[in-house]
């Protein structure tokens, strides 16, 4: 059992790296996507060394355009926009990964159980999840964020709520088709418990799909986080946050102080794009692998 698991993990790992090599279609997407994401992660991890100034202190006059001293200019209070962008990467990555981990932790087991056992439980769960899925994510997140109050953790919870149905639906669907397959029946024949079948046989087979859903939903979650911050529901000053900085820059944008809005918005888009590219490339790989 343990061996199979190890083998499957290794298999997953190689299949992760493999697409980076070779000339398969879509390789460039994976490369670009990874480059963007890794750059942002690097920025977040080494923020104290990269950022030239404190992100929360007023370090110069306000409204300074981009220059060598301030790569992306200063905001209305005189804080360095570049430093805020660098530190802001921490917040958005933290929120989005926390949110994804949470929604996976809830969505995947529920999907497994629901798809595996079926019956009334499945019907009720599916209905609840479908209703949530059919409802605009941002509005749901707004309501939850308002209940919980502004802080990165609470924002993560609000966003996690929104993506639980995404994982649930995907895992449930796959489980439904996997549970009637030969290897599962074989496992049942040798007397494996339900739990063991779900987590040792079915779950490892979902690795790829989960990865695809993960990168695509992270891309989406980034936009949701920025949307919440833009509506003023995510962080408290003086925390640097891209969506919030964009909102704060909005009134100055029209006076020609474009850098206060342009850079945070661009970063949101780039990061979302990075994850979307990875997700695209992986899902393409997955679908070609399946058709073969």
């Amino acid at each position: 059992m343990a061996e199979t698991l190890a083998w499957r993990t290794r298999n997953l790992a190689t299949s992760l790296i493999a697409p980076l090599r070779g000339r398969a279609p879509g390789v460039w997407m994976l490369r670009v996507g990874l480059a963007i994401v890794l750059t942002v992660v690097f920025m977040a991890v080494f923020a104290p060394f990269i950022a030239p100034y404190s992100p929360v202190k007023r370090v110069d006059r306000g409204y300074l355009p981009p220059s060598w001293e301030h790569l992306m200019g200063t905001d209305n209070l005189g804080r360095d926009v570049f430093s805020r962008i660098v530190w802001g990467a921490r917040i958005i990555l933290k929120v989005v990964f926390m949110a994804s981990a949470l929604s996976m932790a809830v969505g995947i087991p529920l999907g497994l159980v629901s798809g595996y056992y079926g019956g009334r439980l499945d019907r009720v769960l599916s209905m609840v999840m479908d209703s949530m899925y059919a409802f605009p994510a941002l509005i749901l997140a707004i309501a939850i964020a308002a209940v919980l109050g502004p802080s990165p953790t609470n924002t993560a919870i609000a966003i996690a709520f929104v993506y639980v149905p995404t994982y649930f639906r995907m895992v449930r669907g796959q489980t439904l088709s996997l549970k009637s397959q030969l290897f599962v029946e074989a496992a049942r024949a040798i007397g494996a418990t339900h739990r063991s079948i779900m987590f040792n046989y079915i779950l490892p087979n979902l690795g790829h799909t989960i990865l695809v859903v993960f990168s695509l939903s992270v891309a989406d979650a980034i936009l949701t986080e920025a949307g919440l911050s833009f509506l003023g529901l995510s962080v408290t000053v003086p925390t640097p946050d891209w969506g919030y900085d964009l909102r704060k820059g909005q009134p100055f944008f029209l006076d020609g102080y474009w850098w206060m809005v342009f850079f945070p918005g661009m970063m949101v888009m780039l990061l979302a794009m990075g994850f979307a590219l990875i997700g695209e490339a992986l899902s393409e790989r997955l679908s070609t692998a399946q058709t073969r």
Partner: peptide, 18 residues
């Protein structure tokens, strides 16, 4: 298709407004 999907609406809207 990817860029369009990942455009941040307020940002894109503001640029168009401007």
């Amino acid at each position: 298709s990817i860029v369009a999907y990942t455009l941040f609406i307020p940002w894109f809207g503001m640029i168009l407004q401007y």
